[in-house]
Structures are given as C-alpha cells and as structure tokens.
C-alpha cells in the first residue's frame, strides 16, 4: 500500500498505524488503477462484472456457509460428548456403588468366617475380641448406638460483615470433629461419611471434601459414644463455645442434640500401607495400625 504519508510532524504521527488503517481502508490499488486509466496507460474496463468477480463472490458465500454449518456441527459434537461423559459418570458411579456393596458383603463374610475360626479356644477368642475392637476403632465396620448429633450450617447470605464470614470451612469441621473425639466419641460420620484416623477433611474451591467426596451444607456430624459423658464434655469444650458465640456473631447454624439410635456406615476398606510376615506359628498382633490423623490437613 503505497499511500503518500502526511507531512512530518502530524499530531497523530504516533498513531500512524491506526490512521493508516482507517484512511487506507479502501485498497489504494483501486485509486491507482483508476488514475492510470485516466492517463490512458491502461485500456478502459470491460464489462462491469467479470466471471472471476462472480466466482470470488460465490467462494465467499460458500466459505461463509461452510463455516456457519461447521460451528453448528461442532456445537452438536460438543453436546454429544458432554452427554456421553455424563452417562459414563453415572454408569461408573453405579458400578462403584455395586462394587462397594459387594465389598461390604464380602467383608461381613470374612468377619463371620474369622469369628468361627477363632472362637474355638481362649487365645482365639481373645484375638477375636481384639480384632472386633480394632475394626471399631479403624471404622471398617458399621456401628450403631446412642450418641450426639451436631449440625453445622452456613449462615444466610449476607449475614456476616464480609462475604464468606458465615461459611463453614473445612477447618471448622476439623475443629468440631477433634472436639468430639476429645469428648469421647467412638465413631464419627459427617453426612454419612464415616471418619477414620486417616480420613482427610479438606476443601477444594468452595466445597468441603471428606475422604475426597464433596459434601454440601448443612453438615450433620453423628458421633456414637457414651452420651452422658460426651454431651457435657463437648458442650463445655472451647470449640463448642466458640461455635455457639459464632451463631450470634456470624449467624452460622450450630446445633447439638442427642441421638438415641445412630447408625454409622463403615468407612471404605483402608489401603494396606505396611505389613510384615508372621515370624511364629501363632498369630502375631497387627503391626500396622493406622497412623493417627495422618490425613488431616
């Protein structure tokens, strides 16, 4: 584009690119050819619309139509992919649930068989008792019994001075869970997720994850244990008092009540992290107890 530039020192000189873009919006070749025609350097134009012009226009329209059709088809493909992903997720979740049920059945079967095998003599019965206690402590069996129910909930929108003030965070749940353990809880579950010594309570974005599963408020913590000892110990704990004061300060929901018959599910089978072979013929006590609160963050 050989357009003559303006005189040096134009006030918009520093914006020559922008100026060029609008002043040379029409291809300068048109003017050039017209000037040469006027001088007689070129023969006068033939018919107004040559075949190649029409061809170029058809090509433009064709490209526009194809591009539009392409965009529409791409959207359909994206939709299809999303639908298939959703159904895949649903299918896998069902399969996981079925397998989890199967695992629970097998675990019960193992327990029964083990109890039968160990129940023959005194040493065996002692071991069976020990196994039962460990199962309870590690959360690998469902438990039921009386206990405390603590319900935590986010405040209504805009109740706190700043957004997020009235939200229940992962660390709040950690505090309450620890206070419940300290008060003598024997087994705890949050919204039906059983807690073990290695269950992590974390947050990802705005969601609270327990054992990597996202939970939604309200958070219902069920703690099975000796209620008569647990309730005063928990209610008097600094954590419970703090939350109680937060109900008025930030408007979060915090409620403690007794549950007559709580049913907590089993936690997922823990991954075996350490094991050692038996050195004697008699069964040795387990050497790989789960490390205490290793997963807390």
């Amino acid at each position: 584009m050989a357009e003559p530039r303006g005189a040096v020192g134009r006030p918009d000189g520093s914006m020559s690119l922008l100026v060029d873009m609008s002043s040379a919006a029409l291809d300068p070749s048109y003017a050039e050819v017209a000037a040469r025609r006027a001088r007689g350097d070129l023969p006068p134009p033939r018919g107004r619309f040559h075949a190649r012009v029409v061809t170029a226009l058809v090509v433009t329209g064709l490209a526009t139509g194809i591009a539009a059709a392409q965009v529409r088809r791409d959207a359909e493909v994206t939709d299809d992919i999303r639908r298939s992903l959703v159904s895949e997720v649903e299918r896998r979740t069902e399969a996981t649930d079925a397998l989890a049920g199967q695992a629970a059945d097998l675990r019960a079967e193992v327990s029964t068989t083990r109890a039968g095998a160990l129940g023959t003599d005194t040493a065996g019965r002692a071991l069976a008792e020990r196994v039962a206690l460990l199962e309870l402590v590690t959360g690998t069996v469902p438990v039921r019994g009386p206990g405390l129910v603590v319900v935590l909930d986010d405040a209504e929108e805009g109740a706190g001075a700043e957004p997020g003030d009235g939200r229940v965070f992962d660390r709040d749940l950690q505090d309450v869970v620890n206070a419940l353990w300290a008060a003598g809880a024997e087994a705890i579950a949050i919204n039906g997720q059983r807690l073990t010594a290695i269950t992590a309570i974390r947050s990802a974005g705005e969601a609270v994850l327990v054992d990597l599963r996202p939970l939604a408020p309200p958070y219902r913590l069920e703690a099975v244990g000796d209620v008569d000892a647990m309730e005063p110990a928990f209610v008097d704990s600094p954590t419970a008092r703090r939350f109680h004061s937060w109900t008025t300060v930030y408007g979060i929901g915090f409620e403690v009540r007794r549950g007559k018959e709580l049913r907590l599910p089993a936690a997922p089978e823990p991954v075996t992290r350490a094991a050692s072979p038996l050195t004697t013929s008699s069964p040795a006590p387990p050497t790989a107890a789960p490390t205490a609160s290793g997963g807390r963050s």
Partner: peptide, 18 residues
C-alpha cells in the same frame, strides 16, 4: 448478480455442508 452469487454460495455451503 453479485448479491445473487453471494446468496448462492451461502445456500450451497449450508446445504452441501461438506
């Protein structure tokens, strides 16, 4: 003629959908 050529192209592109 140019407008017709343009419309023809668009219709062809949408219908053929290559």
């Amino acid at each position: 003629i140019p407008a017709l050529a343009l419309v023809l192209g668009v219709v062809l592109g949408l219908v053929l959908n290559p």
